[in-house]
Design a binder for these strands. Structure first.
Lengths: 135, 135
DNA sequence: GTCAGTGCAAACCCTTTGCAGAAAG
DNA sequence: CTTTCTGCAAAGGGTTTGCACTGAC
């Protein structure tokens, strides 16, 4: 379990002012490697006694993602997942249940990246394996 | 250029009743290998003289995707792209411009798929290489 | 004290839905 | 004729915004 102090240091290191709400949200997210939607974060935060508004959750998640503390995972047009594991890895996405499961980076080998389109630089590689419930 | 007749045959082969609007939409989509959002399809259809409502565009795109005539590409939480190339291939996504570019299937080698989570079967593998404008 | 951060509610945007009229077979 | 499809407009759901209040330093 991370302490509040550790979280505060981590936010400062990322250039983020460690406010009450941001630390509350970070404690939830960084407790373990996991994937959460904004809605889940909001529910857990407020169930845990923290008082955080919807707008602040969205602002904070966006800020954390921008600063590299979280990775956005876009697998469902309906919502964005935020992944507290920012290391290289991939995902299974169960289209029936909405469950998102990590795949170790070495379980899928992506070889020989093609050249980037002219005038662009790589920003990230997402490998998503969609699965559905077996019949 | 595909003829209306060819489109009609293709829709029938997929088990889709070839109505006026569906054929109009299919003509736009299948003219070439491309990626379009629902909004783009709607604009082009109506600019081209066809009379198609928003609801019908969404219904039709969803139906075509379900029947395997289109592939949904989810790279942006704000909208779904529909890819008229249903063959295996991957994508570059320019996060700054929104441009989606095909990557030939053999340009990226995905080896050794890990085992599916229990009780599930693979539904598809998406490889998305996010790029941004070079500074 | 100053400026950034927060909360609330309303606004937004893409997408879906309900239902009456129109078209396909 | 019967069933499916279409169009319109209104509803829906996640996300963003405007603005006054609060908190960080």
């Amino acid at each position: 379990m991370l302490s509040r102090t550790q979280i505060i240091d981590r936010l400062k290191a990322a250039g983020i002012t460690p406010t009450q709400q941001r630390v509350d949200i970070a404690l939830i997210l960084f407790a373990k490697s996991q994937h959460m939607s904004a809605e889940q974060v909001l529910n857990i935060a407020n169930a845990g006694g923290a008082l955080v508004s919807k707008a602040t959750v969205y602002n904070t998640l966006g800020l954390f993602a921008e600063k590299g503390l979280l990775r956005e995972v876009i697998v469902d047009p309906a919502k964005v997942f935020y992944d507290s594991n920012t290391g290289e890895h991939h995902h299974f996405y169960n289209v029936d249940t909405g469950a998102l499961i990590d795949i170790a980076p070495d379980a899928v080998r992506v070889d020989s990246l093609p050249p980037m389109p002219e005038g662009t630089v790589a920003d990230g590689v997402d490998v998503i394996i969609r699965v559905r419930q077996a019949d």
